[in-house]
Structures are given as structure tokens and as C-alpha cells.
């Protein structure tokens, strides 16, 4: 014990107070701004996807930037293959495919993005609440999710559209209703891992309400997960819309979407008029691909540990 007694406490405090000055003068790391953004930008596929989508949205809403025609305008008297005036050719009524594609894109994108917003909202709220209040609400959410998984999404969507008509608003609501669970599960997992962090304990100790904790602590710390899943949900929504419309249960004339165009051109899908079918198909493919790339790019940007897939 001699060692202990010899140690003079004054010594310790003297050193300590000297050290306090060091601590404060010690340079703190320069604020690293936009870390995630930089990582995202370094991901080429994701960056290109963003550019592509921005261009697509601009073109869909201002088609006159690249086409001289208006919607449903008869530009030729017969079906034309792609040429210099009609870049993607014309359909059998002589309408310019590119123009139709862009106008149809408006509806497709509107549905997709609306679904993205609504289902992200429902999903992150439900996920955060389920994760935070773990027991009862959580198992309830899990059971509901199980139920929705039992019947394929396409079947639920087709059935519901039969009832609620072909308004795209109905479509948005129904697709949202069947696709929020993905977000909810991810956010729930995130919240479960956040919940045991000490800052949540600190907030509880400080008498903060559960609502405050959910909105101020849990959801802001789940942004990365929410962003990732919303991009993914949008991609899924586009595919679902196009499939159900292609089967003839989705968007109905006079409204058009890419899925609806595919339905219209179904008869030309094999043979020399394949180009008619190909344009909306490729548009769908690339848009879905872009959202998938963005989703993965966001995931990698927010979580540098998850290796590039």
C-alpha cells in the first residue's frame, strides 16, 4: 500500500489542471461537411442515375424541350419506324412515340414518387413506433406484415383496383398501402438498435416524452435507412404499376403510363414492330434501375462499412 500513500493528490490535480488547458487548446478535427454526399458522389452509378432521373423528370414535364409534337397529335399517316423526325417512330395512329412516352412518364413518375412519399411516411412512423414500444405494437405490426406477405402484391393490387377504380390516386394509395412494410421493417430494426444507446436513456432521464424521443431522436437518426428504403420502394412501385397496367388492370385510357403503353402495344411485341414495345419497356427498365442504384448508393454513402455490393 505504500505506493498509494506516497502519491500526493496535489500532484495529480496539478497535472490535471495543466492538462485541461491542453484539452481546450487541442485542435478539434475540422468539421467534415457532406461526408455522406461525397461518398455518394464517388459512386459513379448512383451519380449517373441521379443525373438521368433529373433529366427524365425535366423532360417528362417539359416535353417540348425535345419534341415538336403535342400529346395525341397525329404526326404521320402510318406507322413509321424510328427516323429523324420521329426519333422513336410512330404508332399505328401516327402518333410520335417519344412524345407519348414523355407524357406517359409524367403519370408513371407521379405515381411512383407519390407512393414513395406516402409509404415512406407511413412506414417510418410505423417502424419507429413499433421499434420503440417494442412489445405489443411491435408484434401487431409484424403480424400485419405477415398477412400482407401471404398474398402476392400484384394480386392485392389487381383486386383492389377492381374495386376502387382506375384513378391513379387510388393506385397511389393502394400501392402505398402494400409497400410501406419494407420501410417499416428497416426503420424498426434501426430503431431497435438505437433504442439501447445512451442518448435515449439520457432523454428518458430528462423526462422527455416518448413522442419527443421518437421524433427528435429516433427518426432523425434513421434518415439514412429511410432514404435508402424510399428509393427502393419507388423502384418497386414503378415495376408494380407497369405490370398491373400491362395485365390490363391498371391505368386505363385516356390516361397513359408506361405500363399502359406496354399494354397498348402488346399486339406488336413480337415481330417487326417490336420497337413500339421496346421504348416504354426500356424507359421503365432504366428508371427502375436508376432508383435501385440510388438506393444502394445511399446505403453505401451512409454506412461506409457496408461494402460496395
Amino acid at each position: 500500500m505504500s505506493g498509494l500513500e506516497e502519491t500526493k493528490e496535489n500532484d495529480v490535480s496539478k497535472q490535471a489542471s495543466k492538462h485541461i488547458k491542453e484539452t481546450i487548446v487541442e485542435s478539434i478535427p475540422p468539421p467534415i461537411k457532406f461526408r455522406a454526399l461525397k461518398r455518394f458522389y464517388a459512386n459513379r452509378a448512383a451519380t449517373i442515375s441521379v443525373v438521368f432521373l433529373v433529366a427524365l423528370i425535366v423532360l417528362c414535364y417539359f416535353p417540348n424541350l425535345i419534341t415538336d409534337f403535342s400529346q395525341n397529335e397525329q404526326t404521320a399517316f402510318k406507322r413509321l419506324p424510328p427516323n429523324s423526325t420521329n426519333w422513336l417512330g410512330t404508332d399505328l395512329l401516327g402518333r410520335d412515340i417519344l412524345t407519348e412516352l414523355l407524357y406517359a412518364g409524367q403519370i408513371t413518375l407521379r405515381i411512383a414518387i407519390a407512393v414513395g412519399i406516402i409509404s415512406t411516411f407511413i412506414g417510418s412512423l410505423a417502424g419507429a413506433i413499433a421499434g420503440y414500444f417494442h412489445k405489443i405494437i411491435d408484434s401487431l405490426l409484424m403480424r400485419v406484415t405477415d398477412l400482407f406477405l401471404v398474398v402476392p402484391q400484384l394480386v392485392i393490387l389487381a383486386l383492389a383496383l377492381k374495386k376502387f377504380g382506375d384513378e391513379y390516386i387510388a393506385m397511389v394509395l393502394i400501392i402505398s398501402l402494400i409497400s410501406w412494410m419494407f420501410t417499416a421493417r428497416l426503420v424498426r430494426a434501426q430503431v431497435l438498435s438505437l433504442k439501447s444507446r445512451e442518448f435515449i436513456d439520457a432523454a428518458k432521464m430528462n423526462g422527455r416524452s416518448s413522442i419527443y424521443i421518437v421524433f427528435r431522436h429516433l427518426i432523425p437518426n434513421s434518415w439514412s435507412v429511410i432514404a435508402v428504403s424510399s428509393a427502393f420502394t419507388i423502384a418497386g412501385a414503378i415495376l408494380l404499376e407497369s405490370t398491373v397496367s400491362f395485365l390490363g388492370f391498371g391505368v386505363q385510357a385516356p390516361l397513359t403510363s408506361w405500363g399502359r403503353m406496354l399494354y397498348d402495344f402488346k399486339g406488336f411485341a413480337i415481330g417487326q414492330y417490336f420497337y413500339l414495345f421496346l421504348s416504354p419497356a426500356l424507359a421503365t427498365f432504366f428508371t427502375v434501375l436508376a432508383f435501385n442504384f440510388i438506393s444502394d448508393g445511399l446505403r453505401d454513402a451512409f454506412d461506409p462499412r457496408s461494402e460496395q455490393s
Binding site: 436513456d201 439520457a202 432521464m205 422527455r208 427528435r216 431522436h217
Partner: peptide, 28 residues
Amino acid sequence: ISMVFQDPYASLNPRMSTASCVREPMHL
């Protein structure tokens, strides 16, 4: 009663500014 936690990296919400962190108990 208040408490200082063990892990300085987990006890502060990374999405809150220092002021907000310190202000958290002040509603009391």
C-alpha cells in the same frame, strides 16, 4: 437527479447540435 454516461460516443445524439444536447433537460 442527473446522470453522466459511460460512452461519450453513444450518449450524445449525433444529429443534435451541442446546444440542443445541453438544452435537452431544460424543459424541466
